[in-house]
């Protein structure tokens, strides 16, 4: 895979068009819990950023703020130069450009697999039915569930459902894909089929933010690893450096707990 070296401390004025997602001094509370603390994060076009950290560290919340499924208390988030608007039509338009894959798949239970992948195209993008179906079938083939097109989600395995969910997000031609622990609800033998699809996406140059516990994926697919704990970004580094030579004690502690068994 391409060696996209991410010089994260490039202080120089990077070309604005290159920065796809920018979080600037983002803060969020859940009641008394300060779940996101002064988060600064910039994701460039084509970059794959993997967010890891212990549970409760705020990484899922971070992921969900990017398409405003969670609101923030202060700071700003911009996507492709546009600040996230308030809830409404404009936000809906922006969300169409941001693909989201959930831990619990969330396929539309009353629609077939094919309809799941068509719905956004026909209702949001206003693509005509035939073109939407053609594209949906192509995407389903690409993620390896083409033969399941006419089944309902409940008839599929977890791994298949998650791949359909990825196809559903891709059908909108998103600028960036958010993955919120996409493999955490899967049986072990199904994790790889989902990771393979994600690897392939990463190779094709999709901009991705991936919250995961899959360290193998982080090592092989990420351009950059973001380590979070207690609502803060503790460390950002290129994967090799992070896994072999973490700077912070918190990261060392975390890695020692998960890498040896």
């Amino acid at each position: 895979m391409s060696e996209v070296s991410v010089t994260k401390n490039a202080e120089g004025p990077a070309p604005a068009g290159d920065q796809l997602v920018v979080l600037d001094n983002v803060n969020k509370h859940f009641g008394a819990l300060h779940v996101l603390q002064d988060i600064d994060l910039t994701i460039k076009r084509g970059e794959v950023v993997v967010v890891i950290g212990p549970s409760g560290s705020g990484k899922s919340t971070l992921c969900r703020t990017i398409n405003r499924l969670e609101t923030i208390d202060s700071g700003s988030i911009t996507i492709d130069g546009k600040p996230l608007p308030q809830e409404g039509r404009e936000l809906a338009r922006l969300r169409a450009d941001v693909g989201m894959v959930f831990q619990s798949f969330n396929l539309f239970a009353h629609k077939t697999v094919l309809e799941n992948v068509m719905l956004g195209q026909t209702k949001v993008r206003k693509t005509d039915k035939a073109a939407a179906a053609k594209k949906a079938r192509g995407l389903l083939d690409r993620v390896g569930v083409g033969t399941q097109a006419d089944k309902y989600p409940a008839q599929l395995s977890g791994g298949q459902q998650q791949r359909v969910a990825i196809a559903r997000a891709l059908a909108m031609d998103p600028k960036v894909m958010l993955f919120d622990e996409p493999t955490s609800a899967l049986d072990p033998e199904m994790i790889n089929e989902v990771l393979d699809v994600m690897q392939q996406l990463a190779r094709e140059g999709m901009t991705m933010v991936v919250v995961t516990h899959e360290m193998g994926f982080a090592r092989s697919a990420a351009n950059r690893v973001v380590f979070m704990a207690d609502g803060r970004i503790i460390e950002e580094a290129e994967p090799n450096q992070f896994f072999n030579n973490p700077r912070s004690d918190r990261a060392k502690d975390f890695l020692s707990k998960i890498l040896h068994h």
Binding site: N67, L69, A92, R93, L94, R95, A96, D97, V98, G99, M100, F102, N106, L107, F108, L119, G120, K123, V124, A165, R168, A169, A171, M172
Partner: peptide, 8 residues
């Protein structure tokens, strides 16, 4: 949430 995420 899934529906909103695809821009509905």
């Amino acid at each position: 949430e899934a529906a909103r995420s695809i821009g509905m």
